[in-house]
Structure formats: structure tokens, C-alpha cells
């Protein structure tokens, strides 16, 4: 697999440097008329049908559950309106979990962005490293989370963990990363980031490949340095992809359950209980399905507001 042929960009070479943005006035809404729209709706039908069946229908059922006082799933219960929500809003553990999830989200984003950007830029280079790395860099991501959890717990084990020993050899005592409440959350965030950064790296690398060399060369001729070129040329072109990745990646990252469940299970003493973990524990350990549903609905609302703000302020200029 050779390096992508960067002399032939994937877009018309004479198109402007900032490609995606089109002003609202130039958008031709009714260009194709009814036939155009019908075709569009036809294209949207399959995904909407699947989402309705798998996501919307169960979600409606969950909202209904949140208005009841159901404990063990499927056991008899009564409609209590918003009482369940009041219970949840008064539970300090709910707010702790929400705060922890905020931290989880930001740190995951920060760590993964640095790793992914660094990797994507290196993947772009020529030479054997980049050539082979394009294949192996995805490995951490293709490992099932079950294995990720076991591998890291084992490597960080205080008795026979290889990382523990490596750090001990240079005089650093790692202690017990998964069971020290001060660093357990950071540890799980690092493990989660290890698992997921390759995905972001591949996406950013793919986006970088759409940056036309001609434009970059033009910038160089104009005497722009690397940072100037990046902010003036590369970044605007990457922006739509980064925007989508950032928004969806963040929402998705917020809802990560398996990594935490399989490493610390929310411990030690609740130090890694993020919102999904709180919902899981409430539903499946404490058997309070209505409360779990109410907490989820509240979370969806919080995320909705956050996403709306994200779209409002970070959307690339000119995109719909």
C-alpha cells in the first residue's frame, strides 16, 4: 500500500481553498423539484426505519418506564409521574456521576486529540514507518474491550505487571493505578484513549489526504511557515470532518460503559462511576429500573443542550 498519491488531489485543483462552505444564498433548494425531494426521502427511509425500530421505540418505552416506580425490570409498578425524577435530582450520586462524566469527556477528548493528530501527521509522511504504521496503528482499536480490560489490568498488576516493573526499574513506583481513587479515573481514561485514538487518527489521516498539495505549495511559495499553513489552509479544509468527529465522538465517548465496567466496575469507592456506570448500577445492581430510566432521560437532555451549544458555536462557517 503506497503512500496516497498526493500530487493528484481528490478535488478540482482550481477550487477555492475553503471548499465546503457555501453561502446560504447560493444554495439551490428547489433545484430538482418534487422528483429530487422524493429521491432524497427514498434515500433516507432505510436508516430512519432502522433507527425507529432499534432506537426510538425502545427509547419511548424507557421514557414511559421513567414515569413509573418500577424496581426489578418487568415487576408490577404504578405510574408516579415525575416523582422518580425528583428522587434522582436529589441523589448526590447522580450529580457526582454527571461531574465525573464531564471530566471523563474532556480528558478523553484531550488525550485522544493529541495522540490522534500526532499519529495522523506522522502517517502522512513517507518512508517505511508510515507505510507499515497505516496497517498496525489501528490494532489497539480492533481488540475487543474485554481483552483491552484484561490486558491493562494485567500489565499494571503490582505483582507481575510488566509496566509496573518497567517503571520500578527507573525508580518510579506506579502504586496501584486501578485501585487508587486519586488516579483510577485517569488510568481508565488512558486505557480508553489507548483503545480509541486509532479511530480518530484514521479519520483525521483520511481528511488530511483531501488537502490539495497545490494549495499547500502555493502557501509555501507565499512564505507561510508550517503553523500558518496549518491554520490558514489545512485546518479550514479539515474543519467539517473535525467538527463531525468532535461532536459525535464526544457524545459517543460520554456513553462509554464497557471499558469502565470491565476494569474498575465504577470503583474504587465510586471514583470511576461516570453517568453510564451510574445508570447501569441503578438498573442492574440496585434493581431500580425507573430511576435508571429517569437518570438516562435527564442525561439525554443534558447532552442535547451541550450538543446544541457545540453546533451553535463550533459549526464551520457556512455549513447547514
Amino acid at each position: 500500500m503506497g503512500a496516497p498519491d498526493r500530487s493528484a488531489p481528490g478535488r478540482a485543483p482550481d477550487s477555492p481553498a475553503a471548499p465546503a462552505p457555501r453561502s446560504r444564498t447560493s444554495r439551490r433548494r428547489r433545484r430538482g423539484g418534487i422528483k429530487h425531494d422524493l429521491f432524497g426521502y427514498l434515500l433516507l427511509t432505510p436508516i430512519l426505519a432502522v433507527m425507529a425500530l432499534v432506537l426510538a421505540l425502545p427509547l419511548v418505552q424507557a421514557v414511559l418506564t421513567s414515569l413509573r416506580d418500577e424496581r426489578v425490570i418487568g415487576s408490577p409498578s404504578e405510574t408516579v409521574g415525575f416523582d422518580t425524577y425528583l428522587i434522582i435530582l436529589q441523589d448526590p450520586a447522580f450529580w457526582d456521576a454527571l461531574g465525573r462524566s464531564g471530566l471523563w469527556l474532556l480528558l478523553n477528548l484531550a488525550v485522544q486529540t493529541v495522540l490522534a493528530f500526532g499519529t495522523a501527521l506522522l502517517l502522512q509522511r513517507q518512508g517505511w514507518w508510515a507505510r507499515t504504521a497505516r496497517v498496525w496503528v489501528v490494532l489497539p482499536w480492533v481488540i475487543p474491550t474485554v481483552a483491552v480490560a484484561v490486558i491493562w489490568q494485567w500489565m499494571l498488576n503490582s505483582n507481575y505487571g510488566v509496566i509496573t516493573h518497567a517503571f520500578a526499574a527507573i525508580g518510579i513506583d506506579l502504586g496501584s493505578p486501578f485501585s487508587d481513587p486519586g488516579i483510577a479515573l485517569i488510568t481508565v481514561i488512558l486505557v480508553n484513549s489507548w483503545h480509541w485514538f486509532p479511530l480518530a487518527a484514521v479519520v483525521i489521516y483520511g481528511a488530511l489526504a483531501t488537502v490539495p498539495v497545490s494549495v499547500l505549495e502555493a502557501a509555501k511559495v507565499d512564505g507561510a511557515n508550517a503553523w500558518q499553513t496549518f491554520w490558514a489552509v489545512t485546518f479550514p479544509i479539515l474543519q467539517p470532518v473535525l467538527f463531525a468527529l468532535g461532536l459525535v465522538g464526544s457524545l459517543w465517548s460520554f456513553n462509554v460503559l464497557d471499558t469502565i465496567l470491565l476494569t474498575t466496575g465504577g470503583g474504587p469507592a465510586g471514583a470511576t462511576t461516570t453517568m453510564p456506570m451510574y445508570v447501569y448500577e441503578t438498573a442492574f445492581d440496585a434493581f431500580r429500573s425507573s430511576q435508571a430510566a429517569a437518570a438516562s432521560v435527564l442525561t439525554v437532555l443534558v447532552l442535547g443542550v451541550a450538543a446544541a451549544l457545540f453546533v451553535r458555536f463550533l459549526r464551520p462557517k457556512g455549513s447547514p
Binding site: L59, A62, N255, L257, V279, Y280
Partner: peptide, 21 residues
């Protein structure tokens, strides 16, 4: 926007109703 909502839904919430469906 609807498609976006898909990412806000905690997967655990859907397990039981989805099983029934």
C-alpha cells in the same frame, strides 16, 4: 438532528425494551 440524538442515548437503557422488540 434526529440522527445526532442517536449518540446521546446510553446503550444500557435500551437493552430490555430492545430485547422485547
Amino acid at each position: 438532528g434526529l440522527i445526532l440524538v442517536a449518540f446521546m442515548i446510553p446503550g444500557t437503557l435500551l437493552i430490555v425494551p430492545l430485547y422485547g422488540i
